[in-house]
């Protein structure tokens, strides 16, 4: 690798032998990752590779079976509340409440994240404006298009100006136009606020377009890591799809019933 070794102050996310088992199944095995501040980092891999499990551990939703990690300099084990304050999270599923308007969804989280009352309205309007959904501010979220819901969720995650943003398959179930809108907003987010972004995706073009660094996971471990150009060189190919096949394997689909049901439910809700 050509990059300089990062110092601890440059690092936004770091895992140290992070491990999670479910019974006899080791979903994530002794994962070591270093993600620099302000970087967009893509975690790729087939279903069941351990991407979502990794994000769930880093967001403190799932305790690790072994190892540890820091997010924005805070330990997921010793200071989970500090980690939650420092990060935003957009889950694979649709987490906006369809029975509330866009404004009301954001208001709930502005209150929970302790945004001062005098700042709330401005912060919400700014976030909606940044994501290009100001006009839908007072409409019920159940009337939003898929791309609008995703942008609302990102706005919701950014209200408290977190240092780190986790996105679990943010463009799943979206049409190409909506995918581009979401990608553009993420790039703008990093440009404007210097937010560190860790995202998972199956879309190799998306990873190449968005990510400074990519790690391909297979069976709970990192099979390859580097920039898209470095990975192409390692795999001796010009195609990111071939990179994926090279490192994750051609017959790597371990999708189970639950994965398919969840993806279809999300896609259905996104319309």
């Amino acid at each position: 690798m050509t990059m300089q070794e990062p110092t601890s102050t440059d690092i936004s996310i770091q895992t140290d032998r992070l491990t999670r088992s479910f019974g006899s199944l080791v979903a994530v095995k002794e994962l070591n990752l270093v993600i620099r501040s302000g970087e967009i980092f893509g975690l790729l891999g087939p279903n069941g590779a351990g991407k979502t499990t990794t994000i769930r551990m880093l967001t403190t939703l799932l305790p690790p079976s072994g190892g540890t990690a820091t997010v924005a300099g805070r330990s997921i084990l010793a200071d989970p509340v500090g980690v939650r304050k420092s990060m935003g999270y957009v889950s694979q599923m649709i987490s906006a409440d369809g029975a509330l308007s866009g404004f009301e969804n954001l208001l709930l989280f502005a209150r929970i994240y302790g945004v001062p009352k005098v700042e709330r309205r401005k912060r919400i309007d700014d976030a909606l404006g940044f994501m290009g959904i100001s006009e839908a501010r007072d409409k019920l979220v159940r009337t939003y298009s898929g791309g609008m819901i995703r942008r609302l969720e990102i706005a919701q995650s950014m209200l408290h100006r977190p240092e780190v943003l986790f996105l679990d398959e943010p463009t799943i179930g979206l049409d190409p136009a909506a995918r581009h809108q979401v990608r553009d907003r993420l790039k703008e987010l990093r440009r404007s606020f210097g937010t560190t972004i860790l995202l998972t995706t199956h879309d190799m073009d998306e990873a190449e377009d968005l990510c400074d660094q990519i790690a391909i996971m297979k069976s709970g471990v990192i099979a390859a890591e580097g920039s898209s150009e470095e990975l192409k060189r390692q795999a001796n190919t010009s195609s990111m799809d071939q990179v994926f096949i090279h490192f994750a394997g051609e017959f790597s689909d371990t999708t189970n019933f639950k994965d398919v049901a969840r993806a279809r439910r999300t896609a259905k809700r996104l319309g």
Binding site: A78, D79, G82
Partner: peptide, 23 residues
Amino acid sequence: MTPPTSKMLPAPAARPNAWADRY
């Protein structure tokens, strides 16, 4: 691949107000 990083990890200390945040 990134090498094992245990030496690079900052000490996982809780912030002084972590308890207060929770309670």
